[in-house]
């Protein structure tokens, strides 16, 4: 059985949509292969359909859905269901809020690291306000005591240094430059050695003072 051009044209869409039975599909293709006019028509329509099916739907204009809802439900219509419960979240669900939340999170993490908080060891009872208060007060007192001790130690070291310094930093006798052609006397030649000894003793005392500051227990005894 063979089909004519009229049949090809009238059944073209069914062929393109693969709705033709296998035998009719065979007749259709056999004719289209042999007829230049029908072959061109089939390739034009199927090619155009392929391009047409690639087209995506146009985007909905901004605000259209909102306008439809306002027209139907009303602008202040009471919304029911889950959305009404989550409605209060809408103002905070913004990019700005997200940045803020991330910043707060990072700050908490940094502070936790700084204060040595280990979240894995935190128990529910630790979050009980009195316990939280006690732990915070203890931590604050500890920090204060350490700071006070450090200042006291510094003060002791400074005191030792200030007592030793006048001896070590005695002003050197005024140098009298010899006149050109005059030689220096024997006692004048001893001055650099004395200065060296003074510097050496000052260095020893400084070392002693530093060692003392590192051994606070012994200093207080």
């Amino acid at each position: 059985m063979t089909w004519n051009c009229e049949q090809i044209e009238s059944r073209l869409s069914e062929y393109a949509d693969r709705l033709l039975p296998a035998d009719e599909r065979g007749y259709f293709e056999a004719h289209a292969r042999g007829c230049a006019r029908c072959g061109a028509l089939v390739s034009r329509v199927t090619g155009m359909l392929a391009r047409l099916h690639q087209l995506e739907l146009e985007a909905v204009p901004a605000g259209l859905e909102r306008r439809i809802l306002e027209q139907t439900l009303g602008p202040k219509a009471e919304r029911k269901g889950v959305r009404s419960w989550l409605g209060w979240l809408a103002p905070v669900m913004t990019q700005r809020f997200a940045y803020g939340a991330v910043t707060v999170l990072i700050t908490v993490m940094v502070l936790s690291q700084a204060f040595g908080v280990q979240w894995s060891q935190v128990e529910l009872r630790d979050l009980y306000p009195p316990n939280l208060y006690r732990a915070t007060t203890r931590k604050a007192n500890l920090v204060y005591a350490r700071g006070a001790k450090f200042v006291t130690d510094l003060r002791v070291v400074y005191e030792i240094q200030s007592r030793l310094r006048p001896e070590a930093e005695q002003p050197a006798p005024t140098e009298q430059k010899p006149a050109p052609g005059q030689s220096q006397g024997p006692e004048e030649k001893e001055q650099p050695r004395q200065q060296n000894r003074a510097n050496e003793s000052y260095g020893n005392y400084s070392l002693l003072a530093m060692t003392a500051s590192l051994m606070p227990g012994r200093m207080t005894q």
């Binding site: 985007a59 909905v60 259209l64 859905e65 809802l69 009471e78 269901g81 959305r83």
Partner: peptide, 13 residues
Amino acid sequence: GSAWEELVRRHTR
């Protein structure tokens, strides 16, 4: 009302 909103969202485009 939320069911209507869903229908509007599905079919508007």
